[in-house]
Design a protein around this nucleic acid. Structure first.
Lengths: 223, 223
DNA sequence: TTCTTCATGTAATTAGTTACATGATTGA
DNA sequence: TCAATCATGTAACTAATTACATGAAGAA
């Protein structure tokens, strides 16, 4: 029992181990395939974390030999399952976003209209790329061929979040492109589109009501 | 001219300096108020980065004295504006998401139905909190009282992204809560809701078409 | 006048990434 | 049989965070 501290990344790996035992390489594949979308981490981290779990008694490592080559398979322990359960019951942090393309768009009054359009196009390409795997996985589940079928219902919850996120990003990029295309070359001092500003405000007000538990109908009546 | 390397965070600060000169404290305020939503960084980083910009000749620092207390105001240089312009014209990275609450939900077959509902509730609270400032800023612009009015049109582009993101997250959390409420206490082996799976797939297919430039009407006709 | 909050930083630590190294397997 | 790629790691580095320190201003 070392004193190494469990981070969210440690628990992410522990959570994967709770599904089944994996070799490090399989862990890397699985993270690249799906987990990276909500918890992106470099490969080297995924070689590191399981060792920590073993040191803490949350996992066991078995050596396997492929020809002359060693690999390690990790299995969760009962104590690991307890730790995971405890972690799951504490509410986590809200979503945190890093969006460099939008950062550049936001500063484009120091640049050009083209910079904005280029970045919006890059965003659309990004969505298409990311959505691809989503589509494949979704179709597989419908065909009854998804991986971990016992987790299908749970997967739908998370999968729907990602799909909705991609849809939202794509719709936004298309909308923004249309608007910016009407702008002059120099994006400085473009007048504010009041109708669009009002539309955005209405969306924000609907969220406030929704989160506060106000039914949509009441809001409609009030406005 | 030191050899310190410019990171995205450096350019984020440089981009702020392009708007106007700021003291470090003002930079921290501004980032807490808005920039953190798309590029979250700790306060100490914001004390560090401007020094690097000065070392690179991208900014100048002026000492000011408030009583016996020193503070530093940073101003962008022409060379800094050039560097920013160059950076803006290179397409940035797509959005990167970290979402611990969803991570916990995703592993909840090792936990309980309650864990899921608790995390979804936490997500809704997070949205409400984040959306609050968005609402304030949006209303201010409509009233013609927004900060940096010359940036209003540009701000609407980024502001709309955030609003749509919050709306998407809130709608998803409400949807997921309704579904999970019908589940038994133990979320393992819950059967897949095929209608919902199909609905998700349709959304994913619409994105693929959208990004590929297929008009909505064609897709409707095809399906 | 004392307590709290605002303001300006620095220091210590760490989580994470990038780059490297090397063996095994596949296929042209 | 040679090149490319898959697989398994380690080492070096750095970006970023957390914690700490201290002075000034405002409130009670």
């Amino acid at each position: 029992m070392s004193s190494a501290k469990m981070t969210t990344t440690s628990y992410a790996v522990l959570g994967l181990l709770a599904i089944k035992p994996w070799t490090t390489h399989e862990l890397v594949q699985q993270v690249n395939f799906s987990l990276r979308r909500i918890w992106p981490r470099a490969q080297s981290k995924l070689y590191e974390e399981p060792k920590k779990l073993v040191a803490l008694g949350y996992a066991e490592d078995q050596e396997e030999w492929i020809g002359r080559r060693r690999r390690t398979r990790y299995t969760i322990t009962e104590s690991g399952r307890d730790a995971l359960r405890a972690w799951l019951s504490v509410p986590g942090d809200g979503p945190s976003l890093e969006f460099e393309q939008l950062l550049k768009i936001d500063f484009s009054d120091s640049g050009s209209k083209d910079d904005i359009l280029t970045n919006l196009a890059a965003t659309l390409e990004w969505v298409q790329r990311e959505n691809e795997e989503n589509l494949v996985a979704g179709r597989a589940y419908l065909a009854g061929k998804g991986s971990f079928p016992e987790r299908a219902a749970l997967n739908l919850i998370g999968g729907r979040f990602l799909t909705d996120f991609y849809a939202m990003v794509a719709d936004w990029a298309v909308w923004a492109t249309k608007i910016v295309e009407t702008w002059p070359e120099d994006p400085r001092g473009v007048p504010l589109d009041l109708a669009e500003q009002r539309a955005a405000l209405r969306v924000a007000e609907r969220i406030a009501d929704l989160a506060a538990g106000v039914p949509a109908s009441e809001h409609d009546a009030a406005s």
